[in-house]
């Protein structure tokens, strides 16, 4: 199977799952913005996504995307370290045109996973999982009271700071990941590389700022 036994195939898997995850982030961010305007509206979204089987199926597909992306990331990194050989350079200088993020995608990705674990614990566990095991009041609030959980989480300054750090790592990860996916899929040349880089910087910034806006607004409200 060329998607696992050729270098370009493995990179194609990283690109396709990565782009799908970027789309997921886009929808997630848009839904979060609802919480800024209306508590009822946001809880309606939570209720809709928690109770139906299509949403559950979507969650499983999403989890599969994450798992594939993460497994391939570690696999590729292991192969690449082996290809580097056993000796390391005594002196090594990063050329100016090399982005810092591009050389640290795995480290950034690990921060993103850790943040994700915290996020699932803060929200998903108390909301979707609580409904699944039939104990909607597990987290102290009703499972569909997403708004309540946002207020609760961001009233804690430790969580607030951890979320901001998480989002910064995500920004670095996305700025490289987005254009890099296009390059790997072959949709690039000397003209498009600057366009893709510009698009991925703007797109990552919009997504991350959207998430941050919600965190900051709810943190400030609770001061």
């Amino acid at each position: 199977m060329w998607l696992s036994n050729s270098s370009i195939g493995r990179k194609v898997v990283m690109s396709v799952t990565g782009i799908a995850l970027v789309l997921f982030l886009t929808f997630h961010m848009l839904m979060n913005l609802v919480a800024l305007f209306s508590a009822e509206g946001y809880n309606m979204v939570c209720e809709f996504l928690g109770t139906n089987w299509y949403a559950l199926l979507g969650t499983l597909a999403l989890a599969a995307l994450f798992v594939i992306h993460i497994i391939y990331a570690f696999w590729l990194t292991m192969m690449n370290r082996a290809a580097r050989g056993s000796e390391r350079y005594a002196v090594s200088v990063k050329p100016k045109t090399v982005e810092w993020a591009s050389q640290n995608m795995l480290a950034l990705g690990v921060i993103v996973i850790l943040g994700l674990a915290l996020h699932l614990f803060n929200f998903w566990y108390n909301m979707m999982f609580a409904e699944l095991i039939g104990n909607p009041l597990m987290g102290g609030l009703s499972a569909t009271d997403g708004y309540g959980y946002i207020v609760e989480t961001f009233s804690n300054p430790v969580f607030f700071i951890l979320y901001i750090v998480w989002l910064c790592a995500l920004w670095f990860h996305l700025t490289h990941g987005f254009w890099s996916a296009m390059q790997t899929l072959g949709w690039n040349n000397t003209i498009w590389i600057n366009r893709w880089k510009c698009i991925s910087n703007i797109y990552s910034t919009v997504i991350v700022l959207g998430f941050m806006l919600v965190a900051v607004v709810f943190f400030v409200k609770n001061l």
């Binding site: 270098s7 493995r10 990179k11 290809a83 990063k94 100016k96 254009w179 890099s180």
Partner: peptide
């Protein structure tokens, strides 16, 4: 590509260090 993979070269992650050097 298949020869390149067979000889143990790594997977490209688009850091662009090659092009710079």
């Amino acid at each position: 590509i298949s020869k390149m993979d067979e000889l143990g070269f790594g997977n490209c992650t688009n850091t662009r260090a090659c092009e710079a050097e």
